[in-house]
Design a protein around this nucleic acid. Structure first.
Lengths: 109, 109
DNA sequence: TCTATCTATCGTATTATTGCAATTTATTAA
DNA sequence: TTAATAAATTGCAATAATACGATAGATAGA
């Protein structure tokens, strides 16, 4: 049917997968890296730096914003984006706990 | 178009986004959690425990395997899956570095 | 106000993903 | 060899995601 059955999973599973999905695109990784690299926020520089159309960049930014990973404020005629600290740290913790829970004991296969 | 332009991104960006995409589904999170929880590997138990059809579970397992996150060996009539240590630790490192590179300085917006 | 500039949104074409029934493949036991 | 069980694959329908041109909205400066 093409529709994820969210109702059979826990809130935590749905939340984590949603955050991962928001990051699971090379353009959005690139956008986040760009924001992380420059202490100062950026905006439409992305359109020039990445090789994607303005509409496409705007769409990716919207997804990152909807997921809560970034936030943006209007600054004159352009928009300034930066990391949303709350969601970012929450993801860092949850993902760290998830990935770190593998203790690599005796590989069984 | 509907086709991700992988060629304009770095190998690292493509690799990371691909691993994230493999995890970016609640069923696949649940499968990984299940594997992490039981030291001993599992197999078709997932079909009973998650509320998804056998074909669907098999498909999710295939995606996790293709991404290199898990590995499976035939064990009698069933198949035993477990974490692939190499990819898992690599992801843990890369993702940790990525998420940890946010120093939360002065929020600019 | 008018214009230039930057973003967001809309519409659309193409491709990918999700989920399942049905079938095929592989292995064990009789 | 045959039957039973488990998993993978195939085929299909429905939905989501990707990308972009065109357009609309918002803000600053003339």
């Amino acid at each position: 049917m093409g529709l994820t059955k969210s109702e059979i999973f826990t809130d935590e599973q749905n939340q984590l997968s949603q955050l991962l999905k928001a990051m699971a695109h090379p353009a959005r990784i690139a956008i986040l890296q760009r924001i992380l690299a420059s202490n100062t926020c950026i905006c439409g520089d992305l359109v020039e730096e990445l090789g994607l159309a303005q509409a496409t960049i705007s769409q990716h930014l919207k997804e990152l914003k909807n997921a809560g990973l970034i936030q943006g404020t209007i600054e004159g005629v352009s928009v300034c984006y930066c990391i949303n600290p709350t969601t970012w740290k929450m993801l860092e913790n949850k993902l760290g706990a998830f990935l770190g829970s593998y203790k690599g004991e005796i590989p069984c296969c």
